[in-house]
Every structure is written in structure tokens, then in C-alpha cells.
């Protein structure tokens, strides 16, 4: 009986070790003011975001670990009788990195502009503010279109041991999916 109790305990521990990632609360990126507009058949997306870096992430950044964020933008057409269809999909990245040699933060925004900052907050501000992000050829505004956007810290850019350490959740930094209805203008 005692033996079976021990086995049960071991099973519970192992399973909880495998699944605890979903239990621990996630760090957040708050995305707001998502907007899309069209200029000469080219769609541009703008949004604001607030990236709250934890002290652990600051520490990692100071150690030279680059923090790269992936932005996933989609325009989806809702279909009442069939599956939703992805009309447009665009992925973007921006990152911030501390350069030890020059003792400055190198920030590259979503449009690929690179700047150096002495203060981290300036670097974060630089990548937070997304304006006129070219997401491709504009789609015809017909039907029920919604746009969705999600920002997520790209773990694949982290050192491999950190990636494989599935129990370490300080790297789980992402936003909720922001969904806005696209005004058709009709």
C-alpha cells in the first residue's frame, strides 16, 4: 500500500513537472491602438505596446542575451457556414540588445531601423512604438474581416539551454491576441 502511494506521488510529480508551464502566470505585453490604413494599395499597421521586462529579463539583457519579439499579424475573413479564411498574414520582428563594447542598447524596430541608446527605456520606447508597418498589398474590404495581432518573445533566439529548460517560465512573455473588426466603409 505504501509502495503504491509512493508510485502515485512520483507520477503526480512527474506529470506536474511536465505541465507546470501552463499553470504559472505569464508575463504580459500589452498591445493597444491597433489600426490599419491603406496608402496606394499598401496596407500599413500601427499599434502601441507596453513591454514590461522583469528584473530577470533585464539581467539577461545586461548579460548580452538579445530579446527578440515576434509580431504575428493576420486578417481573417469570417465565414458563417465554413471555416474562417486567412486573407493576409504577416510576421515581423524587433529586438533589443545590449552592446557591451560600446555600453549602449542596440534597438532594431519592426521596420529594420537600428538605433543605439544609453538608456534601456529609450531603446524599449523605440521598439514599442510601431508606426506605418508595411504588411503588404491591401485586400478588398468585403465581408466580415477582422485583424488579429499577437506579440511574443521569440524563444528560438535565446541560447539553447534556456530554450530546452521547459520549467523556466521567466521567458514566457507575450501579449493576448488583439482582434479588431476592420471597417469596410460601406
Amino acid at each position: 500500500m505504501r509502495f503504491s502511494r509512493k508510485i502515485k506521488l512520483a507520477i503526480i510529480l512527474l506529470v506536474s513537472a511536465g505541465l507546470n508551464t501552463s499553470v504559472i502566470a505569464e508575463n504580459k505585453i500589452l498591445v493597444s491602438l491597433l489600426d490599419i490604413h491603406q496608402v496606394k494599395n499598401i496596407a500599413y499597421v500601427s499599434f502601441n505596446q507596453r513591454i514590461d521586462l522583469t528584473p530577470e529579463l533585464f539581467g539577461a539583457l545586461e548579460k548580452g542575451i538579445p530579446l527578440q519579439f515576434n509580431v504575428n499579424f493576420q486578417i481573417i475573413e469570417h465565414n458563417k457556414f465554413w471555416l474562417d479564411q486567412i486573407v493576409l498574414m504577416k510576421k515581423g520582428t524587433y529586438q533589443i540588445k545590449y552592446k557591451n563594447l560600446i555600453q549602449q542598447y542596440e534597438a532594431i524596430n519592426i521596420n529594420g531601423d537600428k538605433k543605439y541608446f544609453s538608456e534601456i527605456k529609450d531603446g524599449i520606447n523605440f521598439i514599442e512604438n510601431v508606426k506605418e508597418w508595411n504588411v503588404g498589398i491591401a485586400v478588398e474590404p468585403i465581408g466580415n474581416l477582422v485583424m488579429s495581432l499577437k506579440v511574443k518573445l521569440d524563444k528560438s533566439s535565446l541560447p539553447k539551454p534556456i530554450q530546452l529548460n521547459i520549467g523556466d517560465d521567466i521567458w514566457k512573455l507575450q501579449s493576448d491576441s488583439i482582434v479588431n473588426i476592420i471597417e469596410t466603409g460601406n
Partner: peptide
């Protein structure tokens, strides 16, 4: 200088990942 910086950063990254490496 860039080479020294690169090595230093690699070292720091590895040093930072030491705990994760041990755990993994």
C-alpha cells in the same frame, strides 16, 4: 574589439544559461 565583445557576450550568455544547462 568586436571579437573580444563577441566572445565576452557568448561567455556571458553561456554563464547565464548555466543553471538551465544543469537543470536540462
Amino acid at each position: 574589439a568586436i571579437s573580444v565583445e563577441s566572445v565576452y557576450e557568448d561567455y556571458q550568455r553561456l554563464s547565464y544559461s548555466r543553471k538551465s544547462l544543469n537543470i536540462v
